[in-house]
Simulated assay, not measured.
Amino acid sequence: MSTKQKKNGAKSPLELLRNNSVPIMFILICAVCIPVSGFSPGYLINEILTRMGRNTFLILSLLIPIMAGMGLNFGMTLGAMAGQIGLIFAADWQIWGIPGMVLAVIISIPISVLLGLFCGKMLNMAKGREMITSYIIAFFMNGLYQLVVLYMMGPVIPIKHASIKLPRGYGIRNTVSLLNMRQALDNLWAIRIGGVKIPVLTLLITGLLCLFIIWFRKTKLGQDMRAVGQDMDVARDAGIKVERTRIIAIVLSTVCAGIGMVIYLQNMGNIATYSSHTQIGMFCIAALLVGGASVDKASIGNAFLGVVLFHLMFIVAPSAGAKITGDSMIGEYFRVFVSYGVITLALIMYETKKRIAKGKAGEQLKLDQSEEE
């Protein structure tokens, strides 16, 4: 690449390929699997729109901590737990449909704020190791969540409805039915075009979150978060309260994750009480990375592209695996392997880029010093 190209910010085809290797890889996988799977275009579009409405809100909740330089927030699982607790209470009080969802969101928000404050304070004690710390915090809080749901709901926290309690009289069943709430949001204002159902209201709510993120980036707090994400020491010298700003980023992410979990579970129509939240963070992070995001840079476009590519692979891989090998489980293993593999690959690429950038910065510093001498 010439010096002139570098000054103009132009990138070589090889650099563009390297920067977008994960989305390109998924586009190629989908291009191979779609014809083999045998699914019709109408079915695939319908599935993608359904999954876009179900998952995008959750994925967008990851953007604010990335902006604040805190990496991929595995602690979003805490918000998912808060959303589930809200839905358990809605099911117990037999409040269904949109009112039940609104109630679940209202219950989840204060729980999400408390969990977000706790998580943010912990992450401030582990600067530079936020991702692994948030991952372990999610495990710790999962144990506390199970203690509350399995032993405290009934004897300590009143649960009236027998259908959601375990036969022993306390604790919540493994599965809580949300059949009376299933797709209440998705079906309201839904339109059908050529057999394809478009969940208009769900996508509008997701669009509102996108507008909020765009607006938030322009606010004083949003600018502070970007400054903290670029360099904490410089931000502190500029008078920004770094620790407070980072806590706010995690709290906002956790609250959004709680609301997103309510949207996700109303689409599914049931709660797997002890397992729904455990993989949600992993799959949302994988989808965001598939869309071309990195540990330190992510956009709304990355979230939407990631939903399409990641879930398209989820739809077609089992069928393609069954047709190629005669065993549909191959496709299941493949998509789980890929979801974890993408996270690993993205983290390796991020660390490699960081080291290359450090090396170049060091060389440039030596060159500047030698010129001064």
Rank of each mutant, 00 (worst) to 15 (best):
M1G: 04
K4F: 13
N8Y: 11
G9F: 03
K11L: 14
S12E: 03
R18K: 06
N19L: 02
V22N: 00
M25W: 00
A31M: 13
A31F: 13
A31P: 06
G38V: 11
P41R: 12
P41G: 09
Y43Q: 08
Y43M: 09
Y43T: 10
I45D: 06
L49K: 07
M52E: 08
G53T: 07
S61K: 11
I64Q: 10
I64T: 11
G69T: 07
G75W: 00
M81F: 13
A82R: 02
A82N: 08
Q84E: 09
I85F: 06
A104R: 02
L115F: 08
M122W: 04
K127L: 09
L144V: 15
Y151L: 07
M152F: 15
M152I: 10
G154K: 11
V156Q: 11
H161M: 05
K165W: 04
K165G: 02
L166T: 12
R168T: 15
R168D: 09
G169L: 11
R173Y: 06
M181P: 04
L188T: 07
I193G: 09
T202M: 14
G207A: 14
L208C: 12
C210V: 10
F212A: 06
I214Y: 13
K220G: 03
G222A: 03
D224F: 07
R226T: 13
A227R: 05
Q230P: 01
M232F: 00
D237S: 14
G239A: 01
I240T: 12
E243H: 14
R244H: 12
R246N: 05
I250G: 01
V251G: 01
L252P: 07
T254L: 07
V255R: 02
V255E: 03
A257Y: 05
N270H: 12
S276V: 02
I280G: 02
A286N: 03
L289T: 00
A293M: 06
K297R: 15
V307Q: 03
H311L: 11
I324C: 02
T325F: 11
S328Y: 12
F334Y: 11
V336H: 08
V338Y: 06
G341H: 02
V342M: 00
T344Y: 09
R355C: 00
K360C: 07
L367Q: 10
S370A: 14
